[in-house]
């Protein structure tokens, strides 16, 4: 008798699960096969990105020349209003350097560790509760961070380094983007973040002509990045749409003027002695093109124009307020 009850119960349960309409509780019914497909959650960055309110009181482009990287980072940020304009006490700040390759800092393929270290210290001075440093390099992440000196600089300055691991990527939705409307994004370091700062070196790049602060966001994406080159300018425009940073820092302490973006020889690098800070990454890149890559006489990379047309900023820094400081 007991067994008959068990059999009946199991049969009723199985029947319910298999036959009840799919919107009923505990139903497993899936007549079209759609319900059984995996669902990836889609995330979005906050509305308006991580930008702070625009201000007429300060320069749009803060440009510091000199040799002391610490002073240049401070000088450039002070010129656009000082770090307290951007970071409030208690906030979590993510800094995105370019650590794409495992090259020594002097070779110019990566953000200079000293510039990064100075930036982290400045951010902490504004009272940030946590500073994170994250990048998804082309080459193996540990080697890239260690050999570029970025790991050490970040840890010594008190930041937490996030290296990508397989579970760290989520689909990010960027409405309006041409190619990367939904694309895997290095999400883990972004959990709970209030402000995002990019800090990128000045590099030659065969296809997109120059890799600076806008192209830097490439390192936040995962997935099949090697397809991007089929429309690199469109992709960089999408990157400008995807990430609205708090501000960016252009690390022009060294300029990789050829053989970019990998470099590998000191013959490809010259000293730039400049750090630029701006809330407008397109203008910062345009300035770097003219003044650091020394390509004023050549056409600007197409992505600057495309992004400007899409209303994502304006590269033409001649219309903007520049504050230039010479330090030491």
């Amino acid at each position: 008798m007991k067994q008959a009850g068990l059999v009946g119960g199991l049969a009723a349960g199985a029947g319910w699960a298999a036959l009840a309409p799919s919107d009923w509780p505990l139903s497993l019914k899936d007549p079209t096969g759609e319900l059984g497909k995996p669902k990836r959650r889609q995330l979005a960055l906050p509305e308006g990105g991580y930008a702070v309110a625009p201000s007429k009181l300060h320069a749009d482009l803060g440009i510091a020349h000199g040799v002391d990287m610490n002073a240049m980072v401070r000088g450039a940020i002070d010129a656009i209003g000082g770090i307290r304009r951007f970071v409030n006490p208690g906030e979590i700040v993510l800094i995105k350097p370019n650590v794409a390759f495992e090259r020594a800092a002097a070779l110019g393929a990566t953000t200079h560790p000293e510039v990064l270290g100075a930036l982290i210290r400045v951010v902490f001075e504004a009272g940030a509760s946590e500073v994170r440093v994250a990048d998804n390099p082309i080459e193996s992440p540990e080697s890239c961070f260690a050999k570029s000196g970025v790991q050490r600089a970040a840890v010594e300055a008190g930041a937490r380094v996030y290296l990508p691991s397989p579970g760290d990527f989520e689909l990010l939705s960027t409405p309006g983007a041409k190619w990367i409307e939904r694309w895997p994004f290095f999400w883990r370091p972004f959990v709970g973040v209030h402000k995002v700062i990019g800090v990128a070196p000045v590099k030659d790049h065969n296809l997109c002509h120059a890799s600076m602060t806008t192209k830097n966001w490439y390192g936040l994406l995962g997935g099949r990045r090697n397809q991007f080159h089929q429309d690199i300018h469109g992709i960089i425009t999408d990157l400008a749409r995807m990430m609205r940073p708090t501000f960016v820092l252009l690390d022009g302490t060294r300029v990789l003027f050829r053989s970019g973006p990998t470099g590998g020889s000191l013959d490809d690098v010259r000293s730039g002695q400049t750090v630029v800070a701006s809330t407008n990454s397109l203008a910062a890149d345009a300035y770097g093109w003219d003044a650091l890559l020394l390509r004023k006489d050549k056409d600007k990379p197409a992505y600057l124009g495309m992004a400007t047309e899409s209303g994502l900023g304006d590269w033409d820094y001649s219309k903007l307020v520049l504050e230039e400081v010479q330090l030491g």
Binding site: H65, A104, A146, K147, S265, L266
Partner: peptide
């Protein structure tokens, strides 16, 4: 094992005109 080619960075920093 952990350095990034010391030989690559031994040479002088190139000096270009127009820079202070």
């Amino acid at each position: 094992l952990f350095s990034a080619a010391p030989g690559q960075v031994q040479r002088a920093v190139v000096v270009v005109p127009g820079e202070a």
